[in-house]
Amino acid sequence: MLVVHATFPIDPEQREEALARAAELVSETRKEPGVIEYSAVTDLVESDLLRFVEVYEDEAAFAAHVESDHFQAFETKLPELLGGEPEVMRYEVSDASEVEV
Rank of each mutant, 00 (worst) to 15 (best):
D11T: 01
S47A: 06
L44M: 08
L78P: 00
L49D: 02
H5V: 12
F8N: 00
L19E: 00
E37D: 09
E57S: 08
E13D: 14
S27W: 04
E87L: 14
T29D: 01
T29L: 05
S68W: 04
R30L: 11
P79S: 12
E54I: 02
E17T: 02
Y91F: 15
L44V: 13
T76H: 05
Y91D: 09
P9Y: 08
L19N: 01
A6G: 01
S39A: 07
V41P: 05
H5R: 12
H65Q: 07
R15C: 06
S27D: 03
M89C: 11
G34P: 00
E75K: 11
D95S: 14
P86D: 12
D43Y: 06
D58E: 14
E28T: 00
G84R: 06
P33G: 03
I10L: 03
E32W: 01
L49Y: 02
T29E: 00
P33K: 04
E46W: 05
R15E: 01
E32R: 01
D69Y: 12
G83M: 05
L50G: 00
P12A: 00
R51G: 10
L19V: 03
L78T: 02
L50K: 00
E54P: 01
T7M: 04
E80L: 08
V4D: 01
F74M: 02
L81E: 02
V3I: 15
F52Y: 13
G84I: 10
K31A: 04
E46C: 07
A23R: 04
A60I: 07
V3D: 07
S47K: 15
A40W: 07
R30V: 07
V66M: 06
A20P: 04
S94L: 11
R51Q: 15
S97K: 08
A23G: 05
D69N: 14
V93Q: 11
A96S: 15
V93H: 11
Q14A: 06
D11H: 00
H65N: 05
D58K: 13
Y56P: 02
A6N: 00
L50P: 03
P12G: 01
R21L: 03
P9C: 09
